[in-house]
Computed example of a mutant assay.
Amino acid sequence: METVLVVLFDNVQSLDVTGPVEVFNGAELHRPGTYRIRTASPDGAPVRTSSGLTLVPDHAFADAPPAHTLLVPGGAGTRRPDERVVAWLREHGPRAGRLVSVCSGALLLAAAGLLDGHRATSHWSVCEKLAREYPGVEVDPDPIYIRDGRLATSAGVTSGIDLALALVEEDLDREVALSVARHLVVFLRRPGNQAQFSAQLAAQTAQREPLREVQQWITEHPGADLSVETLAARARLSPRHFARAFQTETGMTPGRYVDRVRLEHARRLLEDTADGVEEISRACGYGTPEAMRRSFVRTLGAAPAEYRRRFRPATTH
């Protein structure tokens, strides 16, 4: 039985705690004797989450059991971290078999010196702070989670569930992880390298309704003619005016937005279907498999076929 110890502190993000805990608990219910889940706060006192919930820990740090998986959640409480938490992590983190952070919990691991020399991620809103204040950490703001040896860091809230499912699959097997995912009604298919942002989230939502409608239309029709001229006509603007207004209101050129939408759609089809690369390239508006290959290599560092081999899960019967 492996102990999963969750660190609690005031203003912790409740979902950063409960999401992974539900995954590990689900695995324990599916295969009893696998995980023992415990929580600990600096003095053993209840903590109040950022959403107002109160969590009662099992232990104070002083009597917390040794952890195979030491899980550090994020939340508003990481902005001005409790020095007792940082000091305890500095001492006990190296003893854990596996260090895991969710969201801005990476800031606590970094403050304890546990991320130096390692690649890590966090919630997109704190990655700049993480990189600036801890230059010894190789911060990658894009993936939803990163594994680097015994260290595992994840982005915001729900990505902690994705990471926990990946850890359960590693510890036990895919059948258990799939069973837990089905029970929680979440995907088991999100690989760690999946970007935190969809194209729609990466760009700002335009203020003017015609531009918002164009954004939505691009998302729903990635295989269509998405030239500036065609999109401008849909917005009832001149191409020059449209391109300037789109970038001003979304922070992204029309071409860049179209590229991200097409790449995102192609990735989903590679992960979720058995469609051929040529068929997918047409469906996503690339025109030719070579154009799609160039986009994948430029952005993801892997050709479509290689991407599918790496990140499409095996079929489970």
Results as ranks from 00 to 15, higher is better:
195 A>G: 15
170 E>W: 13
165 L>K: 08
202 A>D: 09
209 E>Y: 07
191 P>K: 09
219 T>L: 12
163 L>H: 03
206 A>E: 04
162 D>F: 01
185 V>E: 13
189 R>S: 15
175 E>L: 14
187 F>G: 14
151 L>D: 00
180 V>A: 06
226 L>N: 08
157 V>C: 06
168 V>R: 03
220 E>H: 14
192 G>F: 06
220 E>F: 12
178 L>I: 12
191 P>T: 10
209 E>I: 05
154 S>I: 03
197 F>T: 02
164 A>Q: 06
217 W>F: 04
197 F>S: 07
152 A>Y: 01
178 L>A: 11
176 V>R: 08
222 P>G: 06
212 R>S: 08
191 P>G: 05
189 R>W: 12
171 D>C: 04
184 L>H: 06
173 D>S: 10
181 A>Y: 04
222 P>D: 04
186 V>G: 05
175 E>T: 14
182 R>C: 06
175 E>Q: 15
202 A>E: 09
222 P>H: 10
193 N>S: 14
155 A>Y: 01
218 I>A: 05
201 L>N: 04
186 V>E: 01
160 G>P: 01
224 A>S: 13
180 V>D: 03
218 I>R: 02
200 Q>I: 04
163 L>D: 00
196 Q>N: 05
168 V>I: 02
172 L>H: 02
225 D>F: 10
194 Q>K: 14
174 R>Q: 15
213 E>F: 10
172 L>R: 02
183 H>A: 12
210 P>I: 00
199 A>G: 00
189 R>C: 08
205 T>N: 12
192 G>C: 08
153 T>A: 01
207 Q>L: 15
225 D>T: 08
176 V>E: 03
152 A>C: 09
182 R>Q: 13
198 S>D: 07
221 H>T: 05
205 T>C: 10
156 G>N: 05
206 A>F: 06
205 T>W: 13
203 A>T: 04
220 E>Y: 11
181 A>G: 01
168 V>S: 00
213 E>V: 10
155 A>V: 02
209 E>W: 11
171 D>L: 07
170 E>G: 02
217 W>C: 03
217 W>Y: 02
